[in-house]
């Protein structure tokens, strides 16, 4: 059933897949709906694993009484239909899947990432953009430089992104600020001594 996102009422069927907007019968919100074959697919996605019938058959690593149907592409363990997880055309077991999620080797299971390049460039540019707070550069510039070097090879976004360019900008801007502080301290000290 496809319903209006505003009022949860079933929408009109006349305008399906036509690209035209039709009012919801209840809230009158203009709806355009695109329906796909999955909406009427009754196939139950439940798989049942077969019991091991013959003693010589290979059993599932996790369920020894169940017949193995495939080997895990990552660890090679035999798996029954229940333990087999298909992802991007490969078959893996649950333990490999959870290990992949933990070690972040399966990108399709990641639901968040920290962007060190964004942090570095913001730390470097913060005192430049918000000039009244320029004195914060004493802390932000070394921090931006450290993060750029420390996380040069760390993972960034899973979509294409100019990570290295951001790090280069952060390093250059931070280095300039540190140099400026150096010059300031040098003049202060030399003037005081004179």
């Amino acid at each position: 059933m496809i319903y209006c996102p505003k009022c949860n009422a079933l929408i009109q069927t006349a305008g399906l897949n036509s690209g035209s907007f039709l009012p919801c019968p209840v809230c009158q919100t203009q709806n355009q709906t695109w329906l796909f074959p999955e909406a009427v697919n009754d196939t139950e996605a439940v798989r049942e694993s077969e019991n091991l019938m013959i003693r010589d058959d290979a059993g599932c690593f996790y369920h020894p009484t169940k017949q193995a149907v495939i080997a895990c592409d990552a660890c090679g363990r035999f798996l029954c239909a229940l333990c087999d997880v298909e992802m991007d055309g490969e078959h893996i077991c649950f333990s490999c899947m959870s290990a992949g999620k933990e070690k972040k080797t399966i990108k399709n299971l990641e639901n968040s990432r920290f962007l060190y390049d964004a942090l570095a460039v913001r730390l470097a540019l913060f005192p430049v953009v918000l000039f009244p707070f320029w004195f914060f550069s004493l802390i932000t510039a070394p921090a931006g430089l450290y993060i750029s070097i420390r996380h040069w090879n760390s993972m960034s976004s899973i979509v294409p992104r100019r990570k290295k360019l951001r790090f280069v900008v952060a390093i250059l801007v931070s280095a300039m600020q540190i140099a400026a502080w150096g010059v300031l301290v040098y003049f202060f000290v030399s003037n005081k001594w004179d």
Binding site: C4, P5, Q30, N31, Q32, F36, R113, I158
Partner: peptide, 17 residues
């Protein structure tokens, strides 16, 4: 960044209001 994935084989409908 927070990610959400919608596999094409699972999408039943798209609704624009």
């Amino acid at each position: 960044e927070q990610y959400k994935r919608y596999y094409f084989k699972d999408i039943q409908a798209i609704n624009i209001i």
